[in-house]
């Protein structure tokens, strides 16, 4: 945006008749960029290239992965067992995203519009635990929900029933994912609500009267950008997660992440694991591009 600002754009952008100064600072910026760019190429881009290359590789008899040019690993992915697992992962991630959206709106709404002076404190109270150890929080749920955990012992003590099996169910895994990532939905929705002109809500109330209709026809469209952003921020990590299914679920609820993790750290089939990783990235890219296109069109129609 600074480029369009008339007060700042003129100075660095225009070479002043070839004074040594402009050349000097272009060199400075290029020098500043060189090291981090080199680092990202060496440690990030090259690692991604290796994953793609190894996905065409094979495992030698002695267990060593070697580069090759076969499509075997990709052919293996069409196994119905794997396909079912992919489908399960996507459905868990979609359910997680939907629950996060339904949960995030009332919370963000109350904090942004009725938080008053404690607004920042409330947001901090949401953010701090979310950045504190994901693993410990998942462990906490597994301890609470286990067969001899606090929740079940309360159910038995209050004579509500004979105990419920929570762990090893899809509900526990999706619940864990929601618990892990809901903050990524709350923050963008909160930011959108903060920026929103609240007199619109008043106007909506005058026109439509009911709070629900006002929400659907005024508040939701006005905060659409925040919701769209939140959907991506929750969906991406939820789809790749393996900790929730590992600690709160079991083999029946495993997701892509568990499968990939097994290939690398248990099954030791690195080329197959690489193919799964690449397939997941391709799937995610397709979903993301489709999603971004759809939301871009809707935003344009709205304005």
């Amino acid at each position: 945006m600074t480029a369009l600002d008339p007060t700042t754009a003129q100075l660095p952008a225009q070479p002043k008749g070839g004074t040594p100064r402009s050349g000097q600072h272009t060199r400075l910026w290029a020098a500043l960029l060189a090291l981090p760019t080199g680092w990202m190429v060496a440690f990030f881009l090259s690692s991604m290239v290796i994953v793609v290359l190894l996905s065409f590789g094979r495992t030698q008899a002695d267990g060593q992965p070697v580069f090759s040019t076969r499509l075997d690993n990709y052919a293996q992915l069409w196994d119905p067992l794997y396909l079912r697992l992919f489908l399960r992962s996507v459905s868990y991630a979609v359910a997680t995203t939907a629950i996060c959206a339904v949960l995030a709106y009332p919370v963000a709404y109350v904090v942004a519009l009725h938080g008053g002076r404690r607004k920042n404190l409330l947001i901090a109270a949401i953010v701090v635990p979310f950045f504190a150890s994901y693993l410990i929080r998942m462990y906490a749920w597994s301890a609470l929900l286990s067969d001899d955990g606090l929740v079940n012992s309360l159910i038995v003590r209050l004579h509500l029933g004979g105990g419920v099996q929570f762990l090893n169910t899809p509900y526990a895994v999706i619940g864990g994912l929601v618990y892990g990532y809901v903050v990524f939905m709350i923050l963008p929705v909160y930011a959108a609500l903060e920026r929103m002109d609240t007199s619109l809500i008043e106007a909506g109330k005058d026109l439509y009267h009911g709070p629900w209709r006002t929400f659907w026809s005024v508040t939701l469209p006005a905060t659409r950008a925040g919701l769209f952003g939140g959907v991506l921020l929750v969906f991406l990590p939820a789809l790749g997660d393996f900790v929730s299914a590992q600690l709160l679920g079991g083999p029946k609820t495993f997701m892509i992440g568990n499968l990939i993790q097994q290939q690398f750290l248990e099954g030791q089939n690195w080329p197959l694991g690489s193919a799964m990783t690449v397939a997941m990235m391709i799937g995610l890219t397709v979903i993301m591009v489709g999603y971004l296109r759809a939301t871009a069109t809707r935003s344009r129609e709205a304005s």
């Binding site: 760019t37 991604m48 290796i50 393996f242 990939i260 993790q261």
Partner: peptide
């Protein structure tokens, strides 16, 4: 390119780093 790690699931970054 430098923003890519933010939109890459962590398991992918992890696997890639292990291979590298």
């Amino acid at each position: 390119v430098t923003l890519l790690p933010l939109v890459t699931p962590e398991i992918v970054t992890g696997v890639a780093a292990l291979l590298l």
